[in-house]
Amino acid sequence: MNESLLTEIQDRILFLTLKRPESLNSFNLEMLTGITNSILEAENNPEIKVIVISGAGRSFCAGGDVKTMGNTNASDVYEHIGVLNKCIKAIKDTHKPVIASIHGFAAGAGFNLALACDLIIAAEDSKFALSFSQVGLISDGGGSYFLPQLIGPHLAKQFFFSGEAVSAERMAQLGIVNFLVPAKDLKEETVKYANKLAGGPGKAFGMMKKLIDHSFTSNLDEILEKERMIQTLMVATEDHHEGVLAFKEKRKPVFTGK
């Protein structure tokens, strides 16, 4: 049993709840390994359509545990970040949509964990902070990659250099947060949206995710050819046939992800 991560499957949705509330869900190896393994298992489970990551207690995730900093050597740090990197890669590599449901603080690598997800739903009073500079460190967990792509290098440098907390409203204005909801409605709204995705064309969602992510490292010709090849495969899926039939019959499609 993983004491740092709560894992639940409900109605085609895998819920991963970071469970170290006494330290604002700061990372440890058990938590990171648990997230990675759970996502890898979900990737191979056709019953799971969507993954939701959230935090227990007062906050989403504080990132690295500041209480243990200064007591580790370079080798330990190198190994720990390697485990973190596997977790980030698992989120990006899975074909299943991954939603980060944020309340309280998402700080440091906890913010970067959210950035690795496909969508962010945040409570209106939540805050985001790239707090690495405040302890004399650089970003880890992929923030140096994700954030500049979302908001450009100048603003990314401002956030990294200052380390100051930024409101969820500002993050929504910048396009980092997809949906802002009242704190009391966060879980309900997250589940509602996850269920909406779970009822969608899973294979198409997975391919959309890959194409969009690859667009940052591909040129137009490469993306056009990928679209051409993938669409050739998509027209043979059951979801496509169901979508066309539902359109003709003027009803809502019932997708199965096949």
Rank of each mutant, 00 (worst) to 15 (best):
K226L: 07
H241M: 15
D140N: 12
A156D: 13
S126F: 08
N71K: 15
F27L: 03
G64E: 02
V52M: 04
T237W: 10
I151R: 10
Y78N: 11
P153T: 12
V177Q: 01
E238M: 10
Q158E: 15
G200L: 06
D11E: 15
A107M: 10
I88K: 00
L130D: 01
E242D: 09
P21F: 08
N219S: 10
V177M: 04
D221Y: 08
S23Q: 13
P153I: 13
A42F: 02
A204V: 13
A129S: 15
I99C: 03
Y145V: 14
T94H: 08
G110V: 08
V254Q: 14
L16Q: 02
S215I: 06
R12I: 10
F15M: 13
E222L: 11
S23C: 13
G63R: 02
S75A: 12
S133L: 06
T72E: 15
T33N: 13
G70F: 15
E79C: 07
A114H: 05
E238A: 12
G136F: 10
L6A: 11
G55C: 10
P46V: 11
Q158V: 15
I212K: 00
K203W: 10
T36W: 06
G142F: 03
I120Y: 02
M171G: 03
G108P: 01
E227F: 13
L6H: 08
E169T: 11
I48Q: 00
R251S: 05
A183I: 06
Y193G: 00
M208P: 00
A42M: 04
V235L: 11
E222G: 09
I176C: 08
E79R: 14
C117F: 02
V77F: 04
